[in-house]
Simulated assay, not measured.
Amino acid sequence: MAQAAHPSGPGGFPPALVERVLADALRPGIRVYGIGGLQGTGKSTLAAQLVEAAAARGVRAAALSIDDFYFDRPAREALARRVHPLLVTRGPPGTHDLALALRTLDALRRREPVSLPRFDKLGDRRRAQALWPAAGALDLVLFEGWLLGTPAEDRAALATPINALEREEDGDGRWRRWCNDALDRDYLALWARIDRLLFLQPPGFEVVPRWRLEQERALQRAEPGRAGMDQAAIARFVQHYERVGRHALRTLPGIAPATIALDAERRPLSG
């Protein structure tokens, strides 16, 4: 599905590619179209472009992110006390309110009016429900998220730490085993709600820290005066995602029915 190189950063993805993806999403029987990809790959950008392109065709569509279903920080703090301190950080398997996600997607499938949850990343809190946008009867839901469709790892692969965070803060592997078990046990029902999955494939995990830092700076520019993470904090933050992210890179090109390969500047590659 990829095409010739073209920037997919601030200017978005090429219009021809957006139209091709939209045609893929409008296949008969598709109500929830998944867009997976590691942090910074352009999932939100592509989803927004698809909503706009769908509207031009008279198709009622809305974008929804798995990021909007993070547990609120107090809930993650309670989880960290009960299970493992690393669970205070949002993102890894086990830190999403899957019951809310399933209820929301099921209501959207039934074309029922529903409020779409929103999460404030700079504040690390779920926004008040009064601020959630309302969605009426939709023809298409663009559901995006960094780990969509990713399977659990073989438990034997969890034995060896893959980065400093795992070595120094999860020496016994309890956190990564708990996250992997959650992925294997709890997320399958969510993946089953996705009718078709597109994977935005970066050239490797090594680009993720830079891309995530660019994303953070864009958030801060959009809301001047609000604090966010600096480069050191981002470097630590992405280590929480590294294990599952690398596993996604190994497995999702063979799982997702559609893949768009990207270069180190987020440009789609020919193929």
Rank of each mutant, 00 (worst) to 15 (best):
L197K: 03
L198K: 05
L198C: 11
L198E: 14
F199H: 15
F199D: 10
F199P: 09
F199G: 07
L200W: 01
Q201C: 09
Q201M: 10
Q201R: 14
Q201W: 09
P202C: 05
P202E: 03
P202I: 02
P203C: 03
G204E: 02
F205P: 07
E206F: 05
V207E: 11
V207C: 04
V207M: 06
V208P: 01
P209M: 02
P209F: 05
R210A: 04
R210Y: 07
R210S: 03
R210E: 09
W211R: 04
W211H: 05
R212S: 10
R212M: 10
R212H: 07
R212E: 07
L213H: 03
E214G: 15
Q215F: 04
Q215K: 15
Q215E: 13
Q215R: 11
Q215G: 11
Q215H: 11
E216V: 05
E216M: 08
E216W: 00
R217T: 00
R217Q: 13
A218L: 13
A218V: 08
A218S: 15
A218T: 12
Q220F: 01
Q220I: 12
Q220V: 06
Q220H: 03
Q220W: 01
R221N: 08
R221Q: 13
R221V: 03
R221I: 05
A222T: 00
A222N: 04
P224I: 09
P224W: 01
P224D: 12
G225Y: 00
A227C: 01
A227S: 07
A227D: 01
M229R: 11
M229Q: 14
M229T: 10
M229Y: 01
M229H: 00
D230W: 06
D230E: 02
D230G: 14
Q231M: 05
Q231W: 12
A232G: 13
I234A: 08
A235L: 05
A235P: 08
R236H: 15
F237M: 14
F237T: 02
V238N: 07
Q239W: 15
Q239L: 14
Q239G: 06
